[in-house]
Simulated scan of single mutants.
Amino acid sequence: MNFPWPDGVRATAAFTFDVDAESCVLAHDPSASSRMSLMTHQAYGPRVGVPRLLRVLRRQEVKATFFVPGFTADTYPDMVRSIIDEGHEVAHHGYLHEPMQGIDAAREAEYLDRGLEALDRLGIRPAGYRAPWWEMNWHTPDLLIERGFQYDSSLLDGDTPYRLHGTETAGDLVEIPVDWGLDDWEQYAFYPGWTGSGVIESPRKVHEMWLLEARAHHAESGCFVLTNHPFISGRPSRAAALERLIEDVRALDGMWVTTLGEIAAHTAGAVEEVRRVDRIEAPGALATNRE
């Protein structure tokens, strides 16, 4: 690959955190609010995980991107302020981490606007968006462009950022692709009766896997985007392994470790081609879920 990174930069890495807290559980099952243990499992993120991860990032002198649902911002405003005070980027992640698959544009617009209003109450106008569960709809880019978002980080069709054309709306935004293999949910997430297989991986194994991916991105001038959740990777041994990973990634020659906002700003100015992602339908009678 020959991506036009800044002079002296061979590849890019971003450490991102989805601060879901209780939102993803309540969106899935509102009655789960009665499950005290499950609620505290999620509250670990803003109460313990975020402060620990902020200390890790401070020691490593790395700025990260935190995707914060509006409900989390409303529930833990001081935690969000602590992220801002450390100089990190805060971006949009829905309001209640709502299920997005197949919803219409009007409902999705309501979720986007409610999340924007919650962040605005803390003085934040986010440049970036990440769809809950990385579940974009074909109309989502238009909604984001209409609201002035500069980038999205939800799609999985590339190793480097690209400019994404709106489907109906004039204009474009930067897409910074992600990968399920670079998400801590697949490695560590487990709660009986709610999520996970019950197999919780060793942080040593996860560090090795992610470092191999970072080195491969570095070799190909790619963009390594790691997604972590504070209620998962904020636990002690996992945070320690993450800090070792950050050290290893920073040591790669020519690796630019920065926020998604910085990557998006560079891409918008350096990449001329605008990509259109077209919907592919199943042929004939096999087609389903047509709009």
Rank of each mutant, 00 (worst) to 15 (best):
A264R: 06
V80W: 08
T40L: 14
H97F: 14
R10L: 05
E168V: 08
G115D: 00
R55H: 07
A14E: 06
T12I: 08
T12V: 15
G198Y: 10
M1T: 13
S202G: 12
A219E: 14
P161H: 00
A265L: 04
W180F: 10
A285V: 12
H217K: 13
T160C: 02
A239D: 10
P126V: 09
A285E: 10
A127R: 12
H92F: 02
S82G: 09
G181V: 04
G8S: 04
G166M: 05
E146P: 03
R114Q: 14
W256C: 05
W133S: 15
Y95E: 03
C223V: 04
F190V: 00
R235G: 03
M36R: 13
P132N: 12
L211G: 06
E272G: 13
L212K: 13
L226I: 02
V9R: 00
G171Q: 03
R147S: 08
R163A: 10
W134Y: 14
L116M: 13
P69M: 03
Y111Q: 04
I124C: 06
D179G: 05
F149S: 02
H218E: 02
E175R: 02
H97S: 11
P283C: 09
T140N: 07
G284P: 06
M136P: 02
H218Q: 10
A240V: 02
V90K: 00
L119F: 11
D29V: 05
A265D: 12
E208Y: 09
Y129I: 03
G45R: 11
R47A: 13
R238Q: 14
P141D: 09
E247T: 15
D179F: 11
W185Y: 13
G284I: 06
R279I: 06
L226E: 04
A239L: 11
I84R: 15
E262M: 08
V48A: 10
E291L: 00
S31T: 15
H266R: 09
A91T: 04
E201R: 15
A240D: 10
W256F: 08
L38P: 13
Y188Q: 07
G148D: 07
D248A: 15
A64M: 00
G102H: 12
A264D: 00
M209A: 15
P230K: 08
H41K: 11
P77V: 13
E272Q: 14
A189R: 06
R290H: 12
L38V: 11
H165S: 08
M36D: 10
T267L: 07
P126W: 09
G222Q: 02
W185R: 09
E186F: 07
R58E: 15
A11C: 09
S233T: 14
G158Y: 02
L26M: 11
D120Y: 08
P77M: 13
S154K: 03
R204W: 07
L260V: 08
L211M: 12
V62C: 04
P236N: 09
R130E: 11
I200W: 07
S221L: 05
M36P: 06
A239E: 11
A189P: 01
V9S: 02
L112C: 12
E272Y: 07
E108G: 10
F231S: 05
V25T: 15
L212S: 14
H165G: 02
G128N: 05
R114N: 08
P51T: 07
P51W: 05
S23M: 10
D253H: 12
A241H: 01
D253Q: 14
G234H: 11
T160I: 01
E247V: 15
V249Y: 08
I145L: 06
S82W: 01
G102Q: 08
Y162K: 00
S37A: 14
